[in-house]
Design a binder for these strands. Structure first.
Lengths: 215, 215
DNA sequence: TATGTTGAGTAACGGCGTTACGCTATCGGT
DNA sequence: ACCGATAGCGTAACGCCGTTACTCAACATA
C-alpha cells in the first residue's frame, strides 16, 4: 500500500523529491547570500532586495522560504551558534583536567568572539534576545553550549578545582566574565590592542580560578 | 568699544541673545522628544518624522539642529552617560574603605543597567562604538567614569585590598565583570528573575574581591 | 526702505520591509 | 492527450524611512 508500484507512482515520488531538493537548495542559497551580505556589510547592509539581487531572484521570492527578515536573521544567527557550539565542544574535549578544561573553554569563547566579530556582535550584543528566543527551545543551540559549561563547572566542583555552590550561578558568572571581556574588546577594537586584550583575558581567567576556586 | 552704548546697539545685543536662547530651547525640545520616543519604543521607533510630529515641526527642521540621526542619537546617549557618571560618582563617595567603595561602584553599575535597560543597551551593547567615539574625546563622559574606577582600583591596591598590578588592566577586568552580569541580565530578562541576578551579582563581586585581592 | 540672513516648510529621491495580485509552467487525474 | 488545480515566481504598490534641494516668509542690518 505504502510502496509505489506502477511507473507513474514512482515518477510522482521522485518528482516530488526533486522539487523538495530544489526547494531546500534555494533556501540554502538565500541563507548563504544573506550570510555573505551580513558578513560584508553588517546588519545595516542586509536588505531583502540586495539578497534577492545577489541570487538573481525577486525580493518577494524570499518570503516563500522565510517568514520575514527576522526569521532569516535568526537562521543566520543560528548558523553562528552552531559554529560557536562546535568550537566550545572541541575545547571542552581538549583536556581531562577540570582546571585546564575550564581555561580552554574560556579562551575558546573569547577567541570565537575576536575571530567572528560580526557574528558575535549580533549573537550576544545587538540581538541578544535570540539567546533565549522561544524558537531555540526545540533544539536550543545556546543552551547546549551553556550545558557544556555547566557540566565542566560541576566536574570542577567535584574535583575541588572550584568551590562548591550552585553550578548554575557559578556558570553564569563565568559566562559573564568571558562575555564582558569579549564584548569590551569588540567595542573598543581601536583602543584595545591585542596585547591589552590578552592581558585582560589572562587576568580574568586567573580571577575566575582564584575567586571561584579557593575556599 | 566692546560695550554697547546706543539703544540700537543694546537692542541688537539682547535680540541676538534671545535668538540664541530660542535656538537652544528648540534644540533641547528636540532632544527631549527624541529621548522620550527612544524610551518608549527603543531605537526602532525613533524616526525623525515622529520626533518632528511630537514637537510640531517639520522633519527637516531637525537637521538645522543636528547633523543627522546618528548625531541626535549620540546626544541622547551622551545624556545617558552623564546620568551614569553621576550615579557612579555618588557611589564612589559613599565610603572611604577601598573594599566597600569598589563594591558600591560595582553595585551602582549593575543597578544603573537594570533600571535603565533601554539606555544601557544602547550605550554598551547596540552602539558600544559610542563608548570610544572620537566625539567623546573632548569631554569624554565614559572616560571619566572609567577614571573613577581606576582611581578606586589604585587606592585599593595601595591599601592592600587588591593585588598590585597594572591598574588599567585590573580596572578593565572589573568593568568586564559588571558589564557581563548586566548585559546577560538584560538579555535574558525573561529567564533571569531578580533573585538569580542578585545571586550572580553577589558571587561576581565576591569573585572580584577574592580573585583580584588575595595574594 | 532696500538687502541680506535666518528659520521654517514642501516636495522629492532612493531605499526599505512587506503584501496583494497575476502569470506561467508543471502536476495529477482522466 | 487534455484540463483543472497548484506551486513558484514576478510586478506593482503601500507606507514607511533618512536625507537633500528648493522655496518662502520673517526678521536683522545698513
Amino acid at each position: 500500500m505504502g510502496q509505489p508500484n506502477t511507473q507513474a507512482e514512482r515518477l510522482r515520488e521522485v518528482s516530488r523529491r526533486r522539487r523538495e531538493r530544489e526547494k531546500d537548495d534555494l533556501r540554502r542559497r538565500i541563507l548563504d547570500a544573506a550570510g555573505e551580505l551580513f558578513l560584508e556589510h553588517g546588519y545595516e547592509g542586509l536588505s531583502m532586495r540586495q539578497i534577492a539581487e545577489r541570487i538573481g531572484y525577486s525580493a518577494t521570492t524570499i518570503y516563500r522560504y522565510y517568514e520575514d527578515k527576522d526569521d532569516l536573521l535568526y537562521a543566520i544567527v543560528h548558523d553562528g551558534f552552531l559554529r560557536f557550539g562546535r568550537q566550545l565542544a572541541k575545547a571542552a574535549q581538549s583536556s581531562e583536567d577540570p582546571r585546564e578544561r575550564l581555561a580552554a573553554l574560556g579562551h575558546a569563547y573569547i577567541e570565537f568572539g575576536l575571530r567572528n566579530p560580526v557574528y558575535y556582535r549580533m549573537m550576544f550584543m545587538q540581538r541578544s534576545d535570540f539567546l533565549f528566543d522561544s524558537r531555540a527551545e526545540q533544539k536550543g543551540p545556546m543552551i547546549d553550549s551553556f550545558g557544556v559549561l555547566r557540566q565542566s563547572v560541576e566536574q570542577a566542583m567535584e574535583s575541588g578545582a572550584l568551590r562548591r555552590g550552585d553550578p548554575e550561578t557559578t556558570s553564569t558568572v563565568i559566562w559573564a566574565v568571558v562575555h564582558g571581556i569579549t564584548s569590551l574588546a569588540l567595542a573598543g577594537a581601536k583602543r584595545f590592542n591585542k596585547k591589552q586584550v590578552r592581558e585582560s583575558a589572562d587576568l580574568a581567567m586567573r580571577m575566575i580560578r582564584d575567586g571561584l576556586g579557593r575556599t
